[in-house]
């Protein structure tokens, strides 16, 4: 049927649905085709009523019953803790299947570097934590220290299983959450440089560690993540 698609196009009357060229084509066709004009006239009234009804519905948002939030949250509370980031930065320096005791050259250098820097680093970390303590959104729970909190935060950056990468956007989101934390900023900055500005890029964690070697605080942060998995660099 020669008029097939015009029948459909006549129903695409909201912005962004029919491109300009097709719109002109439709008008030309309607000018030339009495059947389609008649068909449009036929559906016009119903279309307008339906569109009006949809518009009225858009203007009102139905309100859920008062207890819904609590019902949702108690249903969620009956669930197990969410799936963890399967390998939350615990052995990020090792290729996935090569065993756990082989330390890459870069990481080994970082360990030596740390031996000398540790005191300095710890002082800086302590100062950093004092500053973070002033932020309302970041709060350690119970007996947890700021360092522990930060290592817990590392769980919010999931590693993908096989390629040992993290999402750059996860790190950037951490910056928005912890803008005062230079280590977080360093992590995100490295990720950005390593993905060369590509959006939605993933960063290889070994690359990230190599890139961060020169930044003791960021490296310390990674080390906290490491400890979180019970595999402190010292023990290795």
């Amino acid at each position: 049927m020669k008029c097939g698609r015009y029948g459909e196009w006549m129903l695409l009357n909201r912005p962004g649905e029919l491109d300009e060229k097709s719109g002109r084509e439709l008008e030309q066709h309607l000018a030339a085709c009495p059947e389609c004009r008649a068909a449009r006239l036929e559906t016009n009234r119903g279309m307008r009523l339906a569109a009006l009804a949809a518009e009225r519905m858009r203007q009102t948002q139905p309100i859920p019953s008062a207890g819904m939030t609590d019902r949702i949250l108690s249903a969620v509370a009956r669930e197990k803790r969410p799936e963890p980031a399967r390998r939350p930065w615990t052995v990020p320096f090792l290729p996935a299947r090569t065993g756990r005791l082989v330390l890459s050259g870069a990481a080994a250098c970082a360990v030596l570097f740390f031996a000398g820097q540790e005191a300095l680093v710890l002082r800086r970390v302590a100062r950093l934590e004092d500053r973070m303590a002033g932020r309302s959104s970041v709060r350690p729970a119970g007996t947890e220290s700021w360092t522990e909190l930060r290592s817990r935060i590392s769980e919010s950056v999931p590693l993908d299983q096989d390629r040992v990468t993290v999402r750059r956007s996860d790190l950037e989101a951490l910056v928005r959450l912890y803008p005062d934390d230079p280590a977080v900023r360093a992590l995100a900055g490295s990720a950005k440089r390593l993905t060369r500005g590509r959006d939605g890029g993933r960063v290889s964690v070994p690359d990230l560690v190599r890139h961060l070697e020169k930044d003791p605080i960021a490296s310390e942060w990674v080390r906290q993540m490491e400890k979180r998995g019970g595999k402190s660099w010292n023990r290795i």
Binding site: R81, P82, A85, S137, E155, S156, D170, A173, R176, L177
Partner: peptide, 10 residues
């Protein structure tokens, strides 16, 4: 996004 990151930490 920030809230989701926090939620991930439990």
């Amino acid at each position: 996004t920030e809230l989701m990151l926090l939620a991930r930490t439990g």
